[in-house]
Design a protein around this nucleic acid. Structure first.
Ligand SMILES: [Mn+2]
Ligand SMILES: [Mn+2]
Ligand SMILES: [Zn+2]
Ligand SMILES: [Zn+2]
Lengths: 132, 132
DNA sequence: ATAGCAATTTATACTATGTCTAATATTATA
DNA sequence: TATAATATTAGACATAGTATAAATTGCTAT
């Protein structure tokens, strides 16, 4: 709570109640929620918060570099509180998106590509969770 | 043309004019078009083809394994005539999606992940095209 | 404290992507 | 040719996201 407020302040974002609730909602998750999913969560505590404000706040947080968007689900952007490089695993059955630590995989050859200057990359995996 | 018809037939898809035009439109590209972009292209030759038929046909081709969808652009699915494993590079400035051959990169460690059974994976790179 | 200004929030309208439905048209079959 | 199955179509609908303009909130300067 105080943590969230200081994050907002340190990025020159006025910590309004709506923004605090929105930031807290997305920082508390590891589920990579969509904007409307964040809105649903925010409304549980602050039922009057508007959809536009949640969208505005999420976009503001992305532009300030506090959050990152990821393109991993059909038809919608998801928001990722982890802005450090990492990979993603997507469960075929549930659609759940899981973070995979950067060091869990090694990718070779991306800087030997003739035509492209790679600014960032990630491995996107799909499959199912192991039983055991 | 005959090629497209035989592909459709070999997958038990009746080769109607609308389906032939749609399949040809997406097979002729390397741009990873969205459904509406395919529709625009089809309409240049067959102005009366409906949006629903193009969407139906693309989904049918995906379900029959002739095309693959890729989640690489915000808010829309794109269709990929290459169904073999490969990677993608996305130009920051233009948004263009380029195929990167499977053998151009080497990924290690994906089958040592404790919790996940990986069915497929790809590297998604973003950056800019090199000048020269 | 109050007036005035700037920043924020809100409801609502709007666009874009995609699916669904039910009527029509086409094709295959008997 | 009659019938049934398949495919196409227009349009309605659902969801994701942006834009606008009015209302609210919060600073700032008297
Ligand atoms: Mn949709
Ligand atoms: Mn959008
Ligand atoms: Zn993540
Ligand atoms: Zn591709």
């Amino acid at each position: 709570m105080e943590k969230v407020i200081s994050i907002l302040r340190s990025h020159q974002i006025q910590p309004t109640p709506q923004r605090i609730a929105t930031a807290k909602a997305v920082f508390d998750t590891r589920t990579h929620p969509s904007a409307d999913e964040v809105w649903e969560k925010v409304k549980r505590d602050y039922p009057t918060v508007s959809r536009a404000t949640v969208y505005n706040t999420l976009n503001l947080l992305v532009n300030k570099g506090v959050l990152k968007t990821q393109i991993l689900r059909e038809g919608k952007v998801v928001f990722d509180p982890c802005i450090e490089p990492h990979h993603h695993f997507i469960d075929d059955e549930t659609g759940e998106i899981h973070d995979v630590p950067w060091d869990a995989l090694q990718v070779k050859g991306e800087d030997s590509l003739k035509d492209y200057k790679v600014r960032e990359y990630q491995v996107v995996m799909r499959g199912c969770k192991k039983k055991q």
